[in-house]
């Protein structure tokens, strides 16, 4: 059909536009980070030597600094270094050497990034799985206890600081259930390379951070869903659907819930903000 072709074309144009913007954003982000660090006084070579000799009374000479610089390739101009880094990222998906730990950045980030991602994604899925159905259900209750209980739990989740929840859960696990809570993976997997067994072990440990991350998000989403749902229930198309003879959960899901869920869906992108915020929070569960 003609309209179908038009829709398809519009979709591909939209997709292409998005990819272009994404590429530009990534370029800008990496350039800004590179540039900002460049603007800071000193470079990695100075810092490494300082760390090596600090407290030993050894005087660091300029030649030594230059030597390390040349060794690491830091003597070349900024744009050359950035260009080379960018080229390797784009062609080989290689983020270059990580100076401080003397491995590659890929190895350094590697599974840590994966774990973080899985945790944030897990918390998000967890919060949707609870918030959306419970929000719908609470909104359709006339009044009373259900609303009260859900609101209480929600406000607890919103009001309690995440670290407090984390500490309580850790204590419960350590002292009541006698579980190993010292890491996201069991002792035997520490420092091991990534493997499926290690990943499964991680999932077994992940529920504490999931709960901590997920509780407040869930509470927020739930209250949003409940409010939106109450709003939608009063709309005329709901009455019209009921007047056609549709009722119960099929009606709720087809009409008000689908309308109510849209503002939540449109902000999925924001749900990944813990990815940028949480990594900077203190390491309570690592």
């Amino acid at each position: 059909m003609a309209s179908n072709a038009a829709t398809n074309e519009a979709f591909w144009r939209f997709l292409l536009g998005r990819l272009l913007i994404a590429a530009l954003t990534l370029l800008a982000v990496s350039f800004m980070i590179y540039g900002l660090i460049e603007l800071m006084p000193g470079d990695y070579a100075e810092r490494e030597l300082f760390r090596k000799y600090s407290g030993t009374g050894v005087t660091i000479t300029q030649t030594e600094i230059d030597q390390v610089r040349a060794q690491l390739g830091l003597d070349r101009p900024f744009l050359v270094r950035y260009g080379e880094w960018l080229w390797h990222v784009m062609t080989r998906f290689d983020f270059g050497p990580a100076f401080r730990v003397e491995t590659s950045v890929n190895a350094l980030i590697g599974d840590k990034f994966l774990y973080t991602f899985v945790l944030v994604l897990g918390a998000m899925v967890f919060s949707y799985l609870i918030a959306i159905p419970v929000g719908i259900w609470v909104a359709t209750r006339k009044s009373g206890w259900a609303d009260g209980v859900v609101t209480l739990i929600s406000y607890l989740g919103l009001a309690l600081p995440n670290f407090a929840i984390a500490l309580v859960l850790l204590m419960l696990n350590a002292f009541v259930f006698n579980l190993d809570v010292t890491g996201l993976v069991s002792q035997e997997f520490r420092g091991q390379p990534f493997s499926l067994a290690k990943f499964l072990d991680f999932l077994g440990h992940a529920y504490i951070p999931l709960l901590v991350l997920g509780w407040s998000t869930t509470a927020f989403q739930l209250q949003t869903m409940r409010g939106l749902m109450k709003d939608e229930m009063g709309k005329l198309y709901v009455t019209a659907a009921q007047a056609r003879g549709l009722s119960g959960w099929p009606m709720l899901i087809k009409y008000p819930a689908r309308h109510a869920v849209m503002p939540i869906v449109s902000t999925i992108g924001f749900d990944f903000s813990p990815l940028t915020n949480c990594p900077l929070s203190p390491r309570f569960w690592c």
Binding site: V29, I33, I37, E38, R47, E48, Y82, F95, F99, R100
Partner: peptide
């Protein structure tokens, strides 16, 4: 540590 590769790498991933 002014480690440009690592900082830019992490942020590009995120």
């Amino acid at each position: 540590d002014a480690d440009q590769n690592t900082a830019a790498g992490i942020l590009v991933c995120v």
